[in-house]
């Protein structure tokens, strides 16, 4: 049984190939052409695993680029794929928080890992990876550095959730000589607040899993735990959860 899952995100394209009990995975930048990124991910997975294209029973594609992709056997939303991926790894999880490049989502799972309800941010960038990206640039840092640089003991509240206002707010905070470490902690808190509000609206049931690229940032994890007043578990290989779910669905549909 061999299946491929491809998650074409706004920033990165992730691929997982499952062959019997073996898992292979790749990640590459999506760039301007989501379709090409999807094909490249498939090619890399095949090279990595040594599987021939005709040996793959099914390809399931997800992520924002799913609609543009032209050779999927099945297209599934990120929401279902994350649910499938997370519940495969951690069957006890009931709430998934997924923060990606342009979306943040909260997914509620039932006892068999099925999606019961979900919420998603609206078209604004507040509470998403994009928000942190813009702020990192304003602070002269890489987005991947933010989690390690923050110091929650020096936390400075950033009151604007809106990306545009928050950017000018931190420029002001910096100009007044405030430490970067405190500002960054404040930014993480802002993302945590925003996403926690969305989660609470739906009801937060333990265990809570955190996935998507932003889950790599331990400052956001900290902020989410504070805002939700419960522990939040970062999913292993959190960037790949969507692709993993897609690959599992591919294996499943291949069996049918």
């Amino acid at each position: 049984m061999t299946g491929i899952g491809i998650d074409i995100g706004s920033i990165a394209t992730k691929g997982v190939l499952i062959k019997d009990q073996s898992y292979y995975r790749v990640i590459l930048p999506t760039g301007w052409n989501p379709r090409a990124a999807g094909h490249e991910a498939i090619a890399k997975l095949l090279a990595l695993s040594g599987v021939e294209r005709h040996g793959v029973e099914s390809v399931v594609v997800t992520g924002y680029g799913r609609v543009a992709f032209d050779s999927a056997d099945r297209i599934v939303t990120e929401i279902k794929c994350h649910a499938r991926g997370v519940s495969h790894l951690y069957p006890e999880v009931r709430t998934i928080i997924d923060i990606g490049g342009q979306d943040s989502k909260v997914i509620q799972l039932g006892s068999s890992g099925q999606v019961v309800d979900f919420a998603m941010n609206d078209k604004c960038a507040a509470g998403t990876g994009r928000f942190l990206q813009v702020m990192a640039t304003a602070l002269g840092l890489e987005v991947s550095e933010l989690g390690n640089v923050e110091d929650p003991n020096k936390l400075l509240a950033v009151s604007s959730m809106c990306t545009v206002f928050a950017e000018s707010e931190i420029v002001g905070l910096l100009a007044r000589g405030n430490p970067k470490e405190g500002i960054i902690a404040g930014l993480h808190q802002s993302v945590g607040k925003r996403v926690a509000a969305m989660a609470r609206r739906m009801g937060v049931k333990p265990q809570v899993a955190f996935t998507g690229g932003v889950a790599l940032n331990r400052g956001v994890k900290r902020a989410l735990e504070e805002e939700l007043e419960c522990s939040v578990m970062v999913v292993e290989s959190c960037q790949y959860t969507g692709a993993l779910g897609a690959a599992l669905l591919a294996c499943q549909s291949g069996k049918q």
Binding site: V67, T77, I79
Partner: peptide, 17 residues
Amino acid sequence: EQDFEQLRTRVQAFLEM
């Protein structure tokens, strides 16, 4: 048209449910 793809994801996830 800016939220078209996001709406589509939500609607499709709802239909999957």
